[in-house]
C-alpha cells in the first residue's frame, strides 16, 4: 500500500519580475539570463509569507478534489524558507486551512518534495493515514542576495500541493544525501549571543554553479535509471519526466544523456525561475490542469540540490 495522487494545486504571487527589470538592479541582461539559465520571469511575493503561498496551493488541491480540511490526516510541507523557525510552514498551512491533523516540515532544499512523498508513502504503508496533503512552498526571494548577479536572477517564489489517498501508484523511489556545505549552502541567521565567537555568515544563497550543474546532471541520469529499474520498467516507458526546475541547461544536458525523447521532459522554468521544493508540484499542477496526464501513464519525478541531496520516484498516474 502506498498512495495515488488525487488532485493538485499551485499558487504563485501576482508580482512578476522580468529580466528587463532585473537588468536595472544588477549588471545583467535578458540575453545573458536566458542563455545561461533559461529564465524570462519569476514571481516575487510582496506581502505573502511562505505559508500563505503554501496554503493557497493546498486549498486549490482540496477544492479540485472536493475534499475539506477536516478530512486530511496529515500535512507535510517541504520548505527552506519558513517565515518562522517555529511554528513550521505545515502548521501555519494547517491553521489557515482550518485542519486539525498533524503537520510537519521537511528540509531537504530542492529535493524536499520527493523526500516528502517518500515520507508520506511510509504513513500510508503503515496504515496510519487515509488522506494526506504534501506541499512545497518557498519564498526564495527572502534568501537571495539581491546584489549578486549570478544568483539573484535564478530564484522565484511559489507553492504547489498534491492531495494523496490510499493507492498503489507510488512504484519506486531513491533518496540520496551527500553531506556537503561547499557547493550549495544557505546560512541561517547567526543570532546575537554575547557568548558565541564562531563564524557567522550572511544568510543568503551561496552556490557553486559549475559543481551544482555537474551534480544535478549526474543525479538526474543515475536516479531515473535506478527508479525505473526498481519499478521494473524501461526508462523509455516513462511518459513524463518532471524534473526540479533549477536551470534549463541542466535539463537540456540530462536529456541528451537519457534514452527518453526530449519532449517528455517538462520545462516551465522560463516563467517561474527556480522555486526549489515548489517547482515539481507547480509543474505537476500545470500538466494536470492542462489535461496532459492520461490514467496509467508513468511519471518520473527527479530532484537535486542543497544537502547535497537528490531523489527520484516513479508514479503511475
Amino acid at each position: 500500500m502506498s498512495f495515488r495522487i488525487v488532485s493538485t494545486g499551485s499558487y504563485v504571487p501576482e508580482r512578476i519580475l522580468n529580466n528587463e527589470e532585473l537588468s536595472h538592479m544588477v549588471e545583467t541582461n535578458d540575453e545573458w539570463i536566458t542563455q545561461r539559465v533559461g529564465i524570462k520571469e519569476r514571481h516575487i511575493s510582496v506581502d505573502e509569507p511562505t505559508s500563505e503561498l503554501g496554503y493557497k496551493a493546498a486549498q486549490r488541491a482540496l477544492d479540485a478534489a472536493g475534499v475539506t480540511a477536516d478530512q486530511i490526516d496529515m500535512i507535510i510541507c517541504a520548505s527552506i524558507t519558513a517565515e518562522y523557525k517555529s511554528p513550521n510552514v505545515a502548521c501555519m498551512i494547517q491553521k489557515k486551512l482550518g485542519a486539525t491533523c498533524p503537520a510537519m516540515d521537511i528540509n531537504c532544499a530542492c529535493s524536499a518534495f520527493v523526500f516528502a512523498l517518500e515520507t508520506a508513502a511510509g504513513y500510508f504503508a503503515r496504515g496510519k493515514v487515509n488522506r494526506m496533503l504534501v506541499v512545497g512552498a518557498e519564498r526564495l526571494s527572502a534568501t537571495v542576495d539581491w546584489t549578486h548577479r549570478s544568483t539573484c536572477v535564478i530564484f522565484g517564489d511559489g507553492a504547489g500541493a498534491v492531495l494523496l489517498e490510499k493507492g498503489d501508484n507510488y512504484l519506486s523511489s531513491r533518496l540520496h544525501s551527500y553531506g556537503d556545505n561547499d557547493i550549495i549552502r544557505i546560512p541561517n541567521y547567526g543570532g546575537d549571543s554575547p557568548f558565541y565567537k564562531g563564524p557567522i555568515e550572511k544568510p543568503v544563497i551561496n552556490m557553486n554553479g559549475q559543481e551544482t550543474f555537474k551534480f544535478a546532471v549526474k543525479s538526474i541520469c543515475k536516479d531515473i535509471a535506478d527508479v525505473a529499474a526498481d519499478a521494473g520498467i524501461k526508462v523509455e516507458d516513462i511518459s513524463w519526466v518532471v524534473p526540479h526546475q533549477a536551470n534549463s541547461r541542466i535539463i537540456d544536458f540530462a536529456k541528451k544523456k537519457l534514452p527518453i525523447p526530449g519532449d517528455r521532459f517538462y520545462l516551465n522554468i522560463e516563467r517561474y525561475g527556480n522555486t526549489s521544493s515548489a517547482s515539481i508540484p507547480i509543474a505537476l499542477d500545470e500538466l494536470n490542469r492542462k489535461g496532459c496526464f492520461k490514467r496509467g501513464e508513468l511519471l518520473a519525478l527527479c530532484a537535486f540540490g542543497g544537502g547535497l541531496s537528490s531523489a527520484a520516484c516513479i508514479i503511475r498516474w
Binding site: 545561461r36 555537474k214 549526474k218 541547461r249
Partner: peptide, 11 residues
Amino acid sequence: IDSLDTVEMIM
C-alpha cells in the same frame, strides 16, 4: 563558450 559549456565538455 561559457562556464556551463565547459562543464558539459568536461563531463
